[in-house]
Design a protein around this nucleic acid. Structure first.
Lengths: 148, 148
DNA sequence: ATATTTTTCCGAATATTATTCAGTTATATA
DNA sequence: TATATAACTGAATAATATTCGGAAAAATAT
């Protein structure tokens, strides 16, 4: 046993996939070279950032999903961006947005269970300039990453 | 001009991509047939739901992103699930979660601009059993769909 | 209006890559 | 310890992406 799966998941989260030009061509009833041309164009323009896998997260040991609203201490200008960049580096973090409203940052997290979630929260509160954090645990997911 | 791009985007949002087995094999320093075997296994088990593209949404005319917290009227049991399923069907909707906290549902939206956003909000408030909705507009995105 | 440049499209040939298959090794179960 | 099941792998094959050259269309300049 080589324990391929966890390594595969980590790579698949960010990329290591590629378009199915022939399938697209069939679906769209266009020549595959035309599809190819248009895809490469989008890639060059930066319109396409990556090709990746979407998982059934329960089945890969990431069954605990939560949204976290954060208020950041504002003693230095530009601090929020720093915190966001640090948060984005964690591979438990699916998304990081600066948002309007009572909180400044909205983070989406995927971890194994509540223990791992608690650990993560503790870590970021202790290490980043976070004043207040409100958790919204996902109880049921109907759609994620545009996949239903 | 065949206007390939919009059709391509719609298909790429949900699928029409495939793993790069050779690249994964090189990266992981394992035989490509072993990688192939493991991927197919994950697909059969349902651990992998799809392979899809991630966009620079500004560049594809979906520059307006917002999170929407929703409270649903609870006169009938199971109503929340119905509303979530309806919401999930819209292709402006990236994710739908039932969450803990003051609101029941959290929806992530991607549209062209505030006009389109307002239209969407109006539509769902008029057509689904939504009592209250709070918008959190994304001002800056540091990470999305695990892609930074 | 028309010439010129740039972009988009697409068929045929080639290069890459995924997939199948058959056999081997490892792991789990009896 | 025997037997069954799952995981792994190299060699052959099938499928697919990519390149290239040129044609058509669109945009821009004259």
């Amino acid at each position: 046993m080589k324990n391929i799966t966890p390594r595969l998941i980590e790579l698949f989260k960010h990329g290591f996939c590629t378009p199915q030009i022939t399938q697209l061509a069939k679906k769209m009833k266009e020549p595959s070279t035309t599809i190819h041309y248009n895809i490469k164009k989008m890639e060059k323009e930066g319109a396409i950032k990556a090709y990746k896998a979407v998982f059934d997260y329960k089945k890969i040991g990431l069954g605990y999903c939560a949204y976290l609203l954060i208020r950041v201490s504002q003693d230095k200008y530009g601090k929020i961006d720093d915190v966001c960049e640090k948060l984005a580096k964690h591979n438990e973090v699916e998304s990081v947005d600066i948002v309007t409203g009572d909180f400044e940052v909205l983070v989406k997290l995927r971890v194994k269970d509540s223990d791992e979630y608690y650990q993560f929260i503790q870590y970021i509160i202790n290490n980043y300039s976070i004043i207040k954090a409100v958790s919204m645990t996902s109880l049921k997911q109907f759609k994620s990453e545009f996949v239903g």
